[in-house]
């Protein structure tokens, strides 16, 4: 066999393996979509495995009601976009300070940025709750906004390191030129550096948005009962369902089934799926850059 055909066969084998792995990745999503369109009859029918026999939308109607989507989607949007904006700005400020200025204890601060990453959020959970309760922030969006404004939001160390690397690569000549023109350091940051960093800002915002959207551990308790994001609603889905649709007897009517639960899960992630489908390049390339920073 010639070298060329051997190479070709290897490539085809690799392609098939990658396709198999991709299937494993997508299987839960395909399963979720398929099940969520199935009526009770289809779910019970062993012959129906992937394609429902009829276009059945009741699962979505029920899940929509239980999740209280008209309210929770706005809570979700508010509780992810606003902290993401704060996080995008503040982490950029910190990273710029670290990348461009020399000051005492800078190395220590840099070390703390990395150290902060390895502390699981759950470790500081109780004292933060006590603190926020004392400041009367529990049950308000500020229990989420304040940490984001002070650079302690979800995975903020990653963003600081990403920005740090990005700013360090910008040639210093741009800033020197602006300084000669009489701009101060804050004007330089705002007028020279930020416009050059748009791709980085977009990536930070996207990840920040997605991670805030998916955050439930703090949100479930800190946001109180007035703010219920979609994932928090999904977390309490079974309880909410049984409260809304009590079963009086042992009949199957009204009983929760996996079709309804998968419909609810799908509703929760659809906004993320849309964002990802449009902007997947930005996501992947952002992490690629982080990988190089990792060294």
């Amino acid at each position: 066999m010639s070298r060329k055909t051997k190479g070709l066969i290897t490539k085809i084998v690799i392609f098939i393996i990658l396709l198999g792995i991709a299937y494993a990745y997508l299987h839960p999503l395909i399963y979720m979509v398929s099940i969520s369109f199935m009526s009770m009859r289809d779910l019970a029918n062993p012959i129906v495995s992937w394609i429902p026999t009829e276009l059945y939308l009741d699962n979505f109607k029920t899940a929509w009601k239980v999740l209280d989507v008209p309210n929770s989607i706005w809570d979700s949007i508010e509780m992810s976009i606003i902290p993401a904006i704060f996080q995008t700005i503040v982490t950029a400020l910190v990273a710029y300070g670290l990348a461009r200025f020399e000051f005492p204890l800078k190395r220590l601060i840099f070390f703390f940025v990395i150290a902060a990453f390895i502390i699981p959020v759950q470790v500081t959970y109780v004292p933060k709750y006590i603190l926020f309760a004392r400041l009367k922030l529990v049950g308000t969006p500020w229990s989420t906004f304040l940490p984001a404004m002070l650079g302690q939001g979800v995975k903020s160390s990653i963003f600081i390191l990403l920005y740090y690397r990005f700013f360090s690569m910008i040639p210093i000549a741009f800033e020197e030129a602006a300084e000669i023109d009489g701009a101060n350091r804050f004007e330089i940051f705002y007028k020279v550096i930020l416009p050059m960093s748009i791709p980085m800002i977009v990536v930070t915002f996207l990840f920040s948005f997605v991670w805030y959207w998916n955050e439930t551990y703090m949100a479930a308790v800190f946001n109180g009962d007035n703010i219920k994001t979609l994932p928090v609603m999904l977390r309490d889905f079974v309880n909410r369902y049984t409260a809304m649709f009590p079963t009086r007897d042992a009949s199957v009517e009204n009983r929760i089934n996996e079709g309804i639960r998968m419909a609810a899960t799908l509703i929760t992630i659809i906004p993320l799926l849309i964002v990802y489908t449009i902007l997947q390049r930005r996501f992947v390339e952002g992490i690629e850059r982080a990988g190089i920073t990792g060294e």
């Binding site: 400020l93 200025f101 502390i119 109780v126 002070l150």
Partner: peptide, 30 residues
């Protein structure tokens, strides 16, 4: 320049002390 540097880092530094270091050791105390 050092002062300017600190001003840039300040929000994070306050947050780190108030929302990371203090809760970390307060939970140890508790």
């Amino acid at each position: 320049r050092a002062i300017t540097g600190y001003i840039f880092v300040m929000p994070w530094l306050i947050g780190f002390i108030l929302l990371t270091i203090y809760p970390l050791f307060y939970s140890l105390f508790l």
